[in-house]
Simulated assay, not measured.
Amino acid sequence: MSFSAELRGRTGVTWGAAVGHRFVDELWRGAAEPEVLRAYFVQDNQFLDAFVALMGAAVAAADRPESRIVLARQLGLIAGPENDFFARAMDALDVPLPDRVTPQLAEATRGFLELMDRARVSADYATCLAVLLVAEWLYLDWADHPDADTPRDWIASEWIELHRGPAFAGWVEFLRAEFDRVTAVLDDTSREQVASVFTRAVELELDFFDAAYQA
């Protein structure tokens, strides 16, 4: 069993709770209340800069030129289409400028920002990949439902489409392959340190969905 599959199994209960969360269900049905969407996207918008910085750290830490190219290309997509989506969603949800720039951060948001920053500062490729893999793989898991009808609400529909499809699935497979490759040569202590980062990221994903209903 690959290390990524092993960690996915270890975190199965929490992972399943996140993928099957009320927010995900309401998003797919187009039934999320505007205040819930507003709370979710205001907080998620705060991750963009930290995520871009983490991606940059992964580009720098990657041990193969071909890996750097894949990471750099994906970094460009995050800084482009996804960034544009947030601007349009914020406009549609009438989010005031202060809440876009300096909102009060939910505890889960602070926790995820701290985790991403620790991974970035570590300059350790496996650690950076652990956070990136959870963030992207878990979202692919809840967004990839080929037999389900896409909601009519454009915000929900575009957010789903940003996290599924062949290109995004291929990106997640790349992250898994890289993660499994670089962790295969680590000693047991280092592997468990990376595992703890992976586990913490999964916990924060669930907490983050919960936070959308606590604003």
Rank of each mutant, 00 (worst) to 15 (best):
V59A: 07
D63C: 07
A58F: 08
V42N: 01
I69Q: 15
A62S: 13
M90Q: 14
L113P: 07
M116V: 12
E66T: 11
I69F: 13
I78R: 07
L105N: 08
R120V: 07
E82C: 02
D91I: 13
A119F: 00
T102I: 12
A57H: 15
M90C: 10
E114D: 12
F41W: 09
M90Y: 13
A53W: 06
E82I: 02
A61G: 07
V70W: 04
A72S: 14
V95F: 01
A62L: 07
G111M: 02
D49F: 08
A123C: 15
P65M: 06
V52P: 07
F47M: 02
F112D: 03
S67K: 09
I69C: 09
L48T: 00
P96F: 00
R68V: 13
F86E: 00
Q43T: 03
F51D: 07
A126H: 07
V95N: 10
D49R: 14
Q43P: 02
Q74L: 06
Q46M: 14
S67D: 15
A89Q: 01
A92D: 03
R118H: 09
P103I: 01
R73M: 15
R64K: 08
A126K: 06
V95C: 08
L48P: 03
M90N: 15
E114I: 08
A92C: 01
E114R: 12
R110T: 13
V52I: 15
E114Y: 05
P65L: 04
R73E: 13
